[in-house]
């Protein structure tokens, strides 16, 4: 494994960069999109709730690979030309957003209704109350499941390999097919994934201790 890492250091490092880049973009994007759909799911308007619910149910029940392939094949055919990295990252973002929407919705529903009433009673609007009072409490409450989603997201980014996204898994496939040392190559790839996921895992645990128990 050491020889693989030393001989293909450049490719692995580049793969790590693409994986990290895709994960960070997808994470931020899915958090924003997920929060929007979570808010739609709890809307007082029936049709808004309907749209939110439909989005979540459809997206989370289709395999990630299918969604990603969809973006890779359909978008360039009918709209604009996008590369594998972009298609993969968008697919990952959309797929994860459905799970994040469900997580955040559960968090919002766990915040007592008194918090909203307290905020509305001093004249805050619904969105002010959401932004300043409800969402901060909801997110804190769902830090542990949110951490799971983030770690899954990083690991799921390996889907980029199927659409030529230059990520870790993609580089691993190429190295394995040229060196024929499949075992050591994927062992090295696994270690590189751990370099991202382990600190992320510890960060989420740290936040959990700091916020959830406060």
């Amino acid at each position: 494994m050491i020889t693989i890492i030393t001989e293909h250091w450049g490719e692995l490092l580049s793969g790590l960069g693409y994986t990290l880049g895709s994960s960070v973009i997808a994470l931020i994007g899915s958090l924003v999109i997920g929060t929007v759909f979570a808010l739609m799911e709890i809307s007082t308007y029936k049709w808004v709730r309907g749209i939110g619910r439909t989005y979540v149910e459809i997206i989370r029940n289709i395999p990630l690979l299918v969604i990603t392939m969809g973006f890779y094949v359909i978008v360039p055919t009918f709209f604009v030309k996008i590369d594998g990295f972009t298609a993969g990252t968008i697919g990952l973002m959309i797929y994860t957003s459905a799970f994040i929407a469900e997580t955040i919705r559960a968090g919002i529903e766990a915040v007592s209704t008194g918090q909203m009433e307290g905020a509305r009673s001093v004249g805050l609007t619904y969105s002010q109350a959401m932004i300043h009072i409800i969402l901060p409490q909801a997110v804190k409450m769902v830090i542990p499941p949110l951490g799971n989603q983030f770690i899954n997201l990083v690991k799921n980014s390996s889907v980029l390999a199927f659409v030529a996204g230059f990520d870790l898994m993609y580089q691993g496939k190429i190295i394995a097919s040229t060196t024929f040392n499949t075992f050591d190559t994927y062992l090295a790839v696994g270690v590189f994934y751990l370099i991202i996921t382990m600190p992320l895992s510890y960060l989420m645990r740290y936040l959990e201790k700091k916020w959830v128990t406060a």
């Binding site: 918090q115 300043h132 409490q137 804190k140």
Partner: peptide
């Protein structure tokens, strides 16, 4: 309110 409803995050 009876149950105060102070903002827990502030």
């Amino acid at each position: 309110f009876q149950h105060f409803n102070l903002y827990a995050n502030k």
